[in-house]
Amino acid sequence: MLYLEQRNVSGLDQLLYNRRLLTYLPRVEFATVSRCQQIMLDLWQSYTYATQDYLISPQLQQSLVSAASRELPDGTLAFYDRALTILSAGLNISWQDLLTLRWGIVINAAQISSPQAFLPHADGLRIFSEVSYQDYGGKEITTLHTGDKTVSLARRLHEVLLHLDAQRQQGTLGAAVEKIRRGVTPASPALLKAVAKHHTLIEQLDEPAVISA
């Protein structure tokens, strides 16, 4: 919502009560190229956050994380979430796919942990059903579809995250990341290059943390 010179009470009321409104801005913000670019980026970020909250309300998010934590191995949720943020930064992955990855593993685990509790939300949460936790403990990185373009990037990223988490659980995350880093060539898949590029940050994730809902 835009205003010409100054905000008015009616506009602020609208912003407060209409959840579909993201922000209330002066029109002049769109008059210069540099300011307009920043505003559009901010608006886009607000939109993605609002969509996430629209699909999964903040209260439901907390309940889901709590239930999923009981089902998943210790530290998996926090590791997965943080590693996803690090690795996806340089990848050509859509925000919808990112949202699905971020919440798919949580929602699937929560529905296994407390099937009855989330039954009323089943329809709304179905879009996240494609991504679920699997134990990748026995799999080598070379057996994953890291560069196979017939598999979606989101699915391949999910596999790599589960693989790294399995290594973390076994206490071999540092060695696994180092092995990837050493094997990377200029022709390696983007996913492996991303792991190699951020190897220090990923190794530092080998500590328990709390996922922020």
Partner: peptide
């Protein structure tokens, strides 16, 4: 180009 990358890092 590897379309998995957000920005270009190499060409093939």
């Amino acid at each position: 180009v590897d379309t998995d990358n957000l920005d270009y890092d190499s060409l093939m």
